[in-house]
Amino acid sequence: MDRAVDHATLQANTTHLPLRALIVDDEPLARRGLEIRLESHPDVEIVGEYGDGASAIEALRRDRPDLVFLDVQMPGMDGFQTLRSIPTAEMPLVVFVTAYDHYAIRAFEASATDYLLKPVDEARLAQALARVREARSQRQAIDHRAHLLGLLGELSGRPLLDLDEALKPDALEQLRREDKLAVRDGGRTVRVDLSSIRWIDAAGDYMCIHTDGDTAQGETLVLRATMRDLEKQLDPQRFPRIHRSTIVNARRVVEMRPHTNGEGFLRLDCGQELKLSRTHRDKLALLL
């Protein structure tokens, strides 16, 4: 009876404690966007915002936050390397925030709590925070670390990992070598064979991924993302950027002909012609 009372009291007391959170993302606009969304959650207290892993690690050791919103890929020290530098016993609750469906899809499907996709959806953020609160109230830090390990194993494609293996600095690079790209096309998620992608171009706030299909015209998948988002997901040797608004599958290029002012035109095996801008002529060696 006493133990049950103690547990109930612990849950009640913990529920009213603020969630002390760090935001770690190299993009100032992304940090600001998450900060604005968190304003509607008064029990979340942002104790610091950082744009790189090294600063975040120092803050983690100093401030001991309950929760970290952590971008997966940052210059210098990425999210995995940042986690690898945190002693297991001091590991806070972690919610990854990233634009990279290609890296996230299996973990996202397995655990919507620990992975938020950019742009962050307010309903998903509320769901993640609800589960973070529950985990903390039940003092499930050990279970969370085990769950985080499983999540990292899913991301690396090697489920049976210990913590050091899961957080190896090259874990993200292994994911980039996968043969599929996971994209959300409207209300569905599609895993696209990289070899089937012909080219990718920008259309305002959206990206159009042109792929092989049942007809000669192929199929176009549309997702809300930026050119920078997709460049980070794809191997630049295989999918070089040839224009400010175009990425091409280098293996699909069959011909290049010069144009004026140092520009050129690329012809793909499907017959599509794309412009190679003068500023991206350094990619020519990858294309022919």
Results as ranks from 00 to 15, higher is better:
Gln138Ser: 13
Glu165Cys: 02
Val190Asn: 12
Asp143Phe: 10
Ile209Asn: 01
Glu178Leu: 14
Arg176Asn: 12
Tyr206Met: 12
Arg133Gln: 13
Gln237Lys: 15
Asn261His: 11
Asp193Ile: 06
Gly186Asn: 15
Leu155Gln: 06
Pro258Leu: 04
Ala141Gln: 07
Asp229Lys: 03
Asp201Asn: 10
Pro169His: 12
Asp170Ile: 10
Ala182Cys: 06
Val253Asp: 02
Asp185Lys: 06
Leu230Arg: 09
Leu152Glu: 08
Ala128Met: 13
Glu219Ser: 04
Val254Glu: 02
Arg139Ser: 13
Gly150Trp: 00
Lys168Leu: 05
Trp199His: 06
Arg184Pro: 14
Ala202Lys: 02
Ala250Asn: 01
Ser137Pro: 00
Ile200Ser: 00
Val190Asp: 03
Ala130Trp: 05
Gly157Asp: 04
Ala216Val: 05
Asp214Gly: 05
Leu234Pro: 00
Ile197Ser: 08
Ser137Phe: 07
Gly204Glu: 10
Val132Phe: 00
Arg176Trp: 09
Arg177Ala: 09
Arg133Lys: 13
Ser245Gln: 04
Asn249Met: 02
Arg158Phe: 05
Thr211Leu: 08
Gly204Leu: 09
Val192Met: 10
Ala250Pro: 00
Gln217Tyr: 03
Asp143Cys: 12
Ile242Thr: 09
Ser196Thr: 04
Pro240Ala: 11
Val183Asp: 03
Asp170Val: 14
Gly186Val: 07
Met227Phe: 12
Gln217Ala: 15
Pro258Glu: 08
Tyr206Trp: 12
Ser195Val: 08
Ile197Lys: 01
Val192Thr: 07
Cys208Val: 07
Ile197Glu: 02
Phe239Glu: 13
Arg238Leu: 14
Glu263Pro: 00
Trp199Thr: 00
Leu151Asp: 09
Ala141Asn: 12
Arg124Trp: 12
Ala166Met: 04
Leu163Asp: 04
Met227Ala: 11
